Simulated scan of single mutants.
Amino acid sequence: MAMLTKRVSVRCARSLVYTHTEVMPDWVKTFTKLEYLHVEGTFGSSLSVLPNDMFDDMSALTFMHLGVHPGMQQLPSFAGLTSLKSLNLAVFPSLVALPSVDTLHSLERFVIAGLPLLDSMPDLTAIRNLKWFAVVDRGTWCCNGFYKPCNLSHSMCQVHQIWGTPAATCLDPNRSEKVPTAGTLELIAKFPFSVCAGEALVPGILEGPPTPETMAQCNGTLYRQCEVSGYPEAMCYSARLMGVACDPNPFPIEMRRRQIAKGVGDLCDPTAEAWLGCK
Score class of each variant (00 low, 15 high):
Pro232Asn: 14
Ala272Met: 07
Glu254Lys: 15
Arg240Met: 12
Gly183Gln: 00
Thr211Ser: 15
Thr184Glu: 05
Cys150Met: 03
Ala197Lys: 12
Cys170Trp: 01
Gly198Trp: 10
Thr184Met: 04
Gln225Met: 10
Ser176Asp: 12
Cys246Asp: 10
Val228Trp: 00
Arg128Asp: 06
Trp275Glu: 04
Leu206Ala: 07
Gly204Phe: 01
Trp141Ile: 03
Gln259Phe: 02
Pro192Ile: 01
Ser153Ala: 15
Ser194Lys: 01
Val195Met: 04
Gly230Ala: 05
Ile205Ser: 08
Glu227Val: 15
Ala200Arg: 02
Asp247Gly: 12
Cys236Gln: 09
Leu206Asp: 12
Thr140Lys: 09
Pro173Leu: 03
Arg138Tyr: 07
Pro270Asp: 10
Gln259Gly: 05
Arg257Gln: 02
Ser229Ala: 14
Val159Phe: 08
Pro212Asn: 06
Leu241Pro: 00
Ala274Cys: 11
Thr211Arg: 07
Glu227Leu: 08
Arg240Gln: 10
Cys157Gln: 06
Trp132Glu: 12
Thr271Asp: 14
Leu152Asn: 09
Phe191Asp: 03
Phe191Ser: 02
Asp266Tyr: 05
Glu199Asp: 14
Asp137Cys: 12
Val135Tyr: 07
Gly145Asn: 08
Cys157Phe: 05
Cys218His: 06
Glu227Pro: 02
Met156Lys: 13
Gly183Leu: 01
Arg258Pro: 08
Leu130Tyr: 00
Met215Pro: 01
Thr169Val: 12
Lys262Thr: 13
Tyr231Trp: 09
Pro180Tyr: 00
Asn219Gly: 12
Thr165His: 10
Lys190Pro: 07
Pro209Trp: 00
Met255Arg: 06
Pro180Gln: 03
Cys157His: 03
Ala239Trp: 02
Ser238His: 02
Thr221Gly: 11
Cys268His: 10
Phe251Trp: 13
Ala167Pro: 00
Ser194Ala: 09
